[in-house]
Structure formats: structure tokens, C-alpha cells
């Protein structure tokens, strides 16, 4: 039985007139259905590149990506992507922003609209449908962006440092909310982060990347006790700081190895 998502021997080089930068070197990994995994590594190690390749936004120089046993060649409706900042369109109301994906995909039905709006309510943004994005706070906007991504009902969610632009308190609250929402809807999720704590608190497995060129160095399984707990509770568990120290040393040794 093949895994839900398989990344097979992906390498990617960016070419410019003067340079050829190898962002990813021979990365292979697989993710199971319903799993929550994190890509952890220093900035510049190719995390965004790998996410863009999985989403088919760019074609890799080498290698293949397979979703549910099929090669993906072009943008796939089962893949949802959320950027570092919300990128809600400022000239559209929150509601128009939420329906954007549905409109683009041509699946703009009354039922899906209703689902999107109930998701908005669930995530604590009821009553903001007719607001413009600049009337909301950063955390609220990022939540609205999550709803926009989930509105098209993707099977796997790619999250590219979605909390890094927020203040610490908002970030903790959002981690909790996103984690709970994705669990409730049974989504597979792939989180990119350079925050060790966030990776441990949220995920089932952690892929550790090194930079220049980007390589997958190790994979860590988060202990079952932590996996069960929500991010806030996981952060309070004794195992959390233990794993934190451990990953910290790993990351540190990667940097000093240079």
C-alpha cells in the first residue's frame, strides 16, 4: 500500500544568468493520510521550494511527487496552500475572499458557500463577512485565510510558516485553533516552520532539513503522549522540553558542521 503523499528523489536548482543555486538535493519522504508533519530547518534550506513543488507551483529539476498513488503534474484541487502572510485581497470583503477559491475552481455552489461561512463562524469570525481585510487584526486575517484555503475542501494542507508574522500570544492561540480544526476535519497537513516548539507542539512527525544544499537529514517521531495533546497542552508536558533540547542540539550541530 502506497503512502498518501510520496516525494520521490526531488532535486531542484534555481538558474539565473550568473548562478545556479541548488535549493533541494535528492529529497525523498512520504506522508500518511491524516498525519500532521512538519518541515523544520534554518531559513534557506529549501522548505518553501519543496512546498511549491508539492503544490505544483514549480516543476522540480528532478524527481516526482505522487498523491494517492498518482503522479501530480499540475495544480491539484486536493492540495491547499497557505502562505506566510494572509494575502487576503484588500478590495474584496472577507466573504468574497472566502469564495475566491470556489469561484476560480468553478465549484461555487450554495452548499459550499454555506460550508465556508459556517467554518468562518466555527473559527470565531462570525459577523465579519462584510468587513474588508484591513478592518481585521493580523490573527483574524490569518484565520480568514485558513478558511479560504479550507473552503475548497483540499485533502492535504500545505502551511508555509503561517504563524511567523504574528505576535507570540496570537500565534499560540492560532496553533491551537488550526490544530483542532484540521483534526476535526481529518485533514492531512504539512507545516513548514523554523520554530522548534511549534513543530513539536503541532506535529506527529518532524522532518529535519539542512541548508546549502537543502537535504533531509533526519526524521523524528513525536512521542505518542505529545501527539494526543493539543499544542498548548503539549507545550506544558515534561517530554516537550526534553524533545526541544534534543532538536535544538541537532539543529545546532547541523550549523556548526559547516
Amino acid at each position: 500500500m502506497m503512502s498518501f503523499l510520496v516525494v520521490h528523489r526531488i532535486s531542484h536548482t534555481y538558474f539565473t544568468e550568473k548562478t545556479a543555486i541548488t535549493a533541494l538535493d535528492n529529497v525523498s519522504l512520504s506522508i500518511e493520510k491524516g498525519e500532521f508533519v512538519s518541515f523544520l530547518g534554518p531559513s534557506g534550506c529549501g522548505k518553501t521550494t519543496l512546498l511549491s513543488i508539492i503544490a505544483s507551483l514549480i516543476q522540480p529539476t528532478e524527481g516526482t511527487v505522487m498523491l494517492e498513488g498518482e503522479k501530480i503534474h499540475s495544480i491539484h484541487p486536493s492540495v491547499g496552500y497557505m502562505l506566510q502572510q494572509d494575502y487576503l485581497f484588500p478590495w474584496k470583503t472577507i466573504q468574497e475572499n472566502l469564495f475566491l477559491g470556489l469561484k476560480i475552481m468553478g465549484i461555487d455552489t450554495a452548499e459550499r458557500r454555506k460550508n465556508a461561512l459556517s467554518l468562518l463562524e466555527r473559527i470565531g469570525l462570525q459577523g465579519t463577512e462584510h468587513y474588508y481585510p484591513q478592518q481585521l487584526s493580523g490573527g483574524m486575517r490569518q484565520r480568514a485565510a485558513l478558511v479560504r484555503t479550507l473552503a475548497t475542501d483540499p485533502k492535504i494542507l500545505l502551511l508555509d510558516e503561517p504563524f511567523s508574522a504574528l505576535d507570540y500570544q496570537t500565534k499560540l492561540k492560532l496553533e491551537e485553533l488550526v490544530w483542532q480544526t484540521l483534526k476535526d476535519y481529518g485533514k492531512t497537513a504539512l507545516l513548514v516552520t523554523h520554530d522548534i516548539g511549534e513543530a513539536i507542539a503541532m506535529s506527529d512527525r518532524i522532518f529535519l532539513f539542512s541548508a546549502k544544499p537543502g537535504r533531509l537529514v533526519r526524521t523524528f517521531l513525536v512521542p505518542g503522549e505529545l501527539r494526543q495533546l493539543s499544542p498548548l497542552d503539549a507545550r506544558k508536558h515534561p517530554l516537550f522540553s526534553e524533545l526541544f533540547q534534543f532538536l535544538w542540539k541537532e539543529l545546532d550541530s547541523l550549523e556548526t558542521a559547516k
Binding site: A55, L57, I75, G80, Y81, Y87, F89, L100, T152
Partner: peptide, 28 residues
Amino acid sequence: DPNYLKVLQTFGASRFQCFKEAVLPASF
């Protein structure tokens, strides 16, 4: 901002849709 186009592309938007939803309104 190319990130607006990226958002649209993740939904599989065509070039025309990118123009209509992001490029033109952003340039108003």
C-alpha cells in the same frame, strides 16, 4: 505583489483569472 498571483495559482487560476481577480483591481 506576486503572492496574490500565487494564491490564485494554488486554486488553479488561468492567466485571465489572474488578470481579472488580482492584476487589474490592484492597479485601479
